[in-house]
Amino acid sequence: MKRVLAVVLALAAAVVSGCGMNGQESIVDKDQIVIGVRLDLPSIGFRKPDGTYEGFDVDVARYIAAKLRKGYSFLPVLAADRERVLVDGRADMVLATYTISQDRKAKVLFAGPYHISYQDILIRPDERIANVRDLKGRRICEVKGSNAAQRVVEERKVAAQVVPFEDYGQCLAALKSKRVDAVTTNDVILAGLAARDGSGLRLANAQFNEQRTGVGLHKGDVPGCEAVNRAITDMYQDGTAEKLLRKWFGTSGLNLTTIAVPQFEGCS
């Protein structure tokens, strides 16, 4: 009877894992998973000259893969690729400062968030901007493909002058040469940039616009999402989250007074 039961359960498991996924297997049932990480953000997801990756997102990805007992490989992604690599199946999981939003949820499933960040403002050491409203009439840099500067103008309705640039490198150069007064985006990105720059640029700690950074998964991978959420809970309970945040952002001026497991988005 035990044997029959085992066979029945094995069959059942095979059917369960197969349904509702449009042929894509849940990460729970795979031995090897492909994880999409950023290659362009220092301290978050960054590809070193030797081809290996480092950063907060990368370490979190490693922790989750270990908790799920999966082998893994990294796939480098830029902001614009994140959704596509999940939808076309090139990646099983994406940790790349991927902010959870209601419209993104139509295409991908989010586990987590594993970190709550805020939109913040990077300024010169002598600057006195403390709040998003202080950006009124000031020049702020906008990087192509990012909507952070637009959010200041539209969502927060602050009349700042938006100056477009190709990437964060040019933005920082413009900030230092006073062609713009501030750079605004996700605080962890700014903290990473400031740390790498090392010339004393600082965060205003304005902390407006909460951003929930989640783990992107194939839409329909509910068991995978639940397993990742449990791994994130463990990461905070066993102190790894705090260790990693301090390791990557401890000296960056990022506000780390509260380190606690974030409120999950839910997998259904």
Partner: peptide
């Protein structure tokens, strides 16, 4: 901050966890 960033998320995640068990 203690309430909203530490306690409430944990309570909410407990509710979600029961959903996981049921599913």
């Amino acid at each position: 901050d203690l309430m909203r960033l530490e306690l409430l998320p944990q309570a909410y995640n407990l509710t979600l966890e029961t959903g996981t068990i049921v599913r």
